[in-house]
Design a protein around this nucleic acid. Structure first.
Length: 852
RNA sequence: GCCUGGAUGGCGGAAUCGGCAGACGCAACGGACUUAAAAUCCGUUGUCCGUAAGGACGUGAGGGUUCAAGUCCCUCUCCAGGUACCA
């Protein structure tokens, strides 16, 4: 008999799968299709961490299960390989990003293959491959032709000292992350994508998706739809109007001032000479601050009076116009009417600058009490009330009277009045902004764009794609804020072959999101050189049936790719409105960390384990164990390679799934790997090192087998991997007690184990005398018949408390249960002298006797 | 602040429709095997009281509904993720 030698077994079957293309997905098969997608990784230099294989293992188990269920499964993998780290490494070492990327991909691929995932490697894609980004560029051209791509002056984080533009996350407290140099806002010409044109569809189509409510809610918040009205205010003494957006048109009578964002285009025109110096100073200061700074310093409201007044259209009153950076240029119209009595921000501002507060809503007394707000204070303008109530002081002589109305009603009435007079209209607004689509980097897709001498923009002809990145030796920033491509020499030059007009190529590149926006479509037809993908194949495979990945992509990646997908849908080249039908986010895996009594973190290499618990190696102080994000500084990072070499890939996979529910955050505990490893060894011994017999199973064995088939099947359908594994453990615990193992039980168990631990599954299948792969064996069907028992243990409760247990026939009716229970000696003794009020019988479970 | 999750033994977690809380695994303890150890196997293990039989308590806290609540309702606390002057 052979020992369980995981390293030999795993190598053997991984080679077998790859060499025989066991997991090749077939286009247009008669079988039902099932498309399972993993979020493809950025192949970083540090290799795989234990978080990656969590989602990958879950999808792999499901794919293997679905194949056994007769599905034609598409399960591909690829590389999201453009990105900053390779470029930074290039700046430091001169190594071309292409070389770094290739090296990292090969490490990642080796690590992923060592886990035995059943990917169809013939469909591997790489976003930095010019055969791939040719089509990313092609999609950009389609976006441009549809009017969804435009150039705009947008402020970027410009760091003069580094001579480069920084991403938001590279700026900390207004300083560059590296070096701590000052960062300022500098307007630059940038490509924008008009995602806002799709805001409504991105919102409403969420409805039919099988995603967790949490993720849908995050997307809804990000899109941020609000309904209200736009209202025009005349400026006193000027031939000008200011349009404001408000969600509370009903509060117009309470508007006592108006605020423009510092960037508002009317500010210069309306500012009075006396105020202009102060206004200029304030605007200059605001321009230097990033949006982030503006919101971080949100403690004190600031602002300056322009000297001008607006006319409140409902009552003709003159109200002062201020500028303040709490009003953002990018939302709504960049101007607000301020109602300090019923908006907390306006109230703070008005209090600070002594602006009148006029109450126009009499608060609902109960609501006010619940929030500890004094109604008299609100009515006197000394407190702010944002809740419900009845309108007061809200009528004019021009036919608007909303006094006494509740909020919704008064809103509608006001909008109607404004619309009739042409001074306002109902309006909808979204927080969602257009997508800043250019980066000042080398390592990204070049835009297929030429800026011509005469100022026009020309797109590269589709037949001339891909526009490849030029070979360069230096990847340093250009120093002007442009991408390193500004130094690309001849590559930049373009001459129109017919007119001879000169042009210069776009030097921006696309962001990392671009390649990941449509990769799921390329897997469908990865080698197509005449189309992004074949339309018939797309119809066959789409949509993605299950998409699994980390929650960190909940908003941006998923929103951006949904947007591109809808554009492609409108172009008629994809057949579904949405790309990802079902989405599951795997939880984070935490490492074990330690802290001392003061709560200070202690790196794991300074911790000594004693029988009394962990202590500090140097001070001997007792430490407390707790889960924390894996990080280099805490030295609590678990490397999958180490786990695999010690316990094998099957144990690694099994443990990742056994830890807890896929979507939960859970701490890694290497002792737990040992536990599942022991289970696999027990399973090995049970099948490979004990006698397999053709004897008939007894009723109890049949029940265990069929209960296991039922539980594992149902748990796979709901992705309850941890409980499926525990049932397989129960099976092994039961059948290990048998002298000989019935052949049927052995075979069905090995089939059920194989999606979770495929290497040992294949090997045990061989040992059971089979000579084909187990990957396409039909999944075993359980039979409810065998789950039946003649007698069940019924709990007898007395007034809801467990009293005793007794056996009863399993098909007994409620009356029979009652009779048997009352005939029980213990029950008789317990209810002696008491009156039975009520008896509740739950078949198969319990009898509850209410007596006193 | 707001939105979304969550809180169950020493630890990770389990518990269809409200129906025996703690499956399965880890750790710990006891035993068998062994010269010994490892490995393996068998057993114990929610807490408290009790020699025992047995009893009381127990799913973040408090209240409620019910014959019966981890599960349903109300109030609160804490933790995680997201978001942040969005008018």
């Amino acid at each position: 008999m052979i020992e369980y030698d995981f390293s030999a077994i795993e190598k053997k079957w991984q080679d077998f799968w790859v060499n025989n293309k066991i997991f090749k997905a077939e286009d247009f098969s008669d079988k039902p299709k099932y498309y399972v997608l993993d979020m493809f990784p950025y192949p970083s230099g540090s290799g795989l961490h234990v978080g990656h294989p969590e989602g990958y293992t879950a999808t792999d188990i499901l794919c293997r299960y679905k194949r056994m269920r007769g599905f034609n499964v598409l399960h591909p993998m690829g590389w999201d390989a453009f990105g900053l780290p390779a470029e930074q490494y290039a700046i430091e070492t001169g190594t071309h990003p292409k070389i770094t990327t290739e090296k990292n991909i090969s490490t990642f691929k080796k690590q992923i293959q060592a886990l035995g995932f059943s990917y169809d490697w013939d469909r591997e894609i790489n976003t930095t491959d010019e055969k791939y980004y040719k089509w990313t560029q092609w999609i950009f051209i389609q976006l441009y032709n549809k009017g969804l791509a435009y150039i705009d002056e947008v402020a970027v984080n410009w760091c003069p000292a580094l001579g480069t533009v920084l991403a938001n996350e590279e700026v900390i407290d207004g300083k560059s992350e590296r070096g701590g140099h000052p960062v300022i806002r500098k307007p630059m010409k940038q490509w924008m994508l008009k995602i806002t044109a799709y805001a409504e569809r991105l919102l409403s189509d969420l409805e039919d998706l099988d995603w967790s409510e949490g993720i849908k809610e995050m997307q809804r918040n990000w899109i941020g739809k609000s309904t209200g009205a736009e209202v025009d205010f005349k400026v006193d003494g000027h031939d000008a109007e200011i349009t404001v957006y408000t969600t509370r048109p009903d509060t117009l009578f309470g508007a006592t001032y108006m605020v423009l964002s510092p960037e508002h285009k009317l500010v210069e025109r309306i500012t009075t000479p006396a105020q202009s110096a102060a206004i200029d100073a304030y605007r200059r200061e605001a321009a230097l601050k990033s949006d982030l700074d503006r919101t971080e310093l949100n403690t004190e409201k600031t602002g300056v009076f322009t000297g001008a007044y607006a006319i409140n259209p409902v009552n003709g009153k003159k109200i002062p116009i201020w500028i303040a950076d709490y009003v953002l240029a990018s939302y709504g119209t960049g101007a607000i009417m301020a109602v300090p009595s019923h908006d907390t921000r306006d109230f703070e501002f008005a209090t600070k600058f002594d602006i009148p507060v006029i109450c126009i809503i009499d608060p609902n007394a109960k609501d006010a009490a619940a929030e500890n707000i004094n109604v008299a204070d609100v009515l006197a303008g000394k407190a702010c009330w944002t809740g419900n109530g009845k309108m007061i002081n809200s009528a004019n002589e021009a036919g608007l009277d909303i006094n006494g109305m509740e909020v919704t009603q008064s809103k509608a009435a006001t909008i109607k009045w404004l619309e009739e007079r042409g001074i306002g209209k109902g309006a909808v607004n979204y927080k969602l902004r257009d997508w800043l689509f250019s980066r000042q980097r080398y390592w990204g897709e070049p835009f297929p764009v030429i800026h011509m001498e005469d100022g026009s923009i020309r797109l590269v002809d589709e037949k001339d794609l891909p526009l490849t990145l030029p070979e360069m030796k230096e990847f340093k920033p250009s120093g002007t804020g442009e991408s390193p491509l500004a130094n690309a020499g001849e590559w930049l030059d373009y001459v129109d072959p017919e007119t001879g007009m000169k042009g210069r190529r776009e030097t921006n590149t696309m962001p990392q999101w671009a390649g990941s926006c449509w990769y799921y479509l390329r897997y469908i037809d990865p080698d197509n050189n005449s189309q992004a993908f074949d339309l018939e194949k797309e119809k066959y495979w789409m949509p993605v049936d299950l998409y699994v990945g980390g929650a960190e992509h909940a908003v941006l990646h998923l929103l951006y790719s949904r947007f591109w997908h809808k554009v492609l849908y409108d172009l008629g080249i994809v057949s579904t409105k949405e790309p990802f039908q079902r989405l599951v986010n795997q939880g984070m895996i935490l490492g074990i960390s330690y802290k001392d009594s003061r709560g200070a973190l202690v790196p794991n290499d300074l911790v000594k384990h004693t029988p009394e618990g962990p202590v500090h190696m140097q001070t001997g102080e007792k430490l407390e164990e707790f889960p924390a994000k894996m990080s280099k500084s805490l030295k609590n990072v678990v490397n999958p390679d180490d786990v695999i070499s010690e316990y094998g890939a099957d144990s690694m996979r099994l443990y990742e799934m056994f830890m807890g529910p896929l979507e939960a955050t859970k701490p890694w505990n290497t002792k737990g790997v040992e536990g599942v490893f022991r289970f696999l060894r027990r399973a090995w011994r049970m099948v490979a090192e004990s006698e397999i017999s053709d004897r008939k199973m007894d009723a109890e064995e049949l029940r265990t087998l069929h209960a296991t088939m039922k539980k594992v099947t149902e748990d796979l359908e709901t992705m309850g991997f941890n409980t499926a594994i525990s049932q397989l453990m129960v099976f092994v615990n039961e059948f290990s007690k048998c002298e000989t193992l019935p052949r049927e039980a052995a075979e069905k168990f090995v089939i059920m184990l194989s999606p979770f631990a495929p290497h040992i599954g294949e090997e045990l299948w061989r040992i059971l005398g089979k000579d084909d792969t187990i990957a396409y064996e039909p999944w075993p069907e359980f039979n409810e018949e065998f789950l039946k028992v003649d007698e069940v243990e019924i709990l007898i409760q007395l007034v809801g408390k467990p009293k005793t247990r007794m056996m009863m026939p399993s098909d007994i009716d409620q009356k029979g249960m009652e009779n048997l229970a009352l005939a029980n000696d213990e029950v008789k003794a317990a209810i002696a002298g008491k009156t039975v009020r009520k008896i509740i019988c739950v078949p198969g479970r319990l009898v509850n006797i209410v007596a006193n």
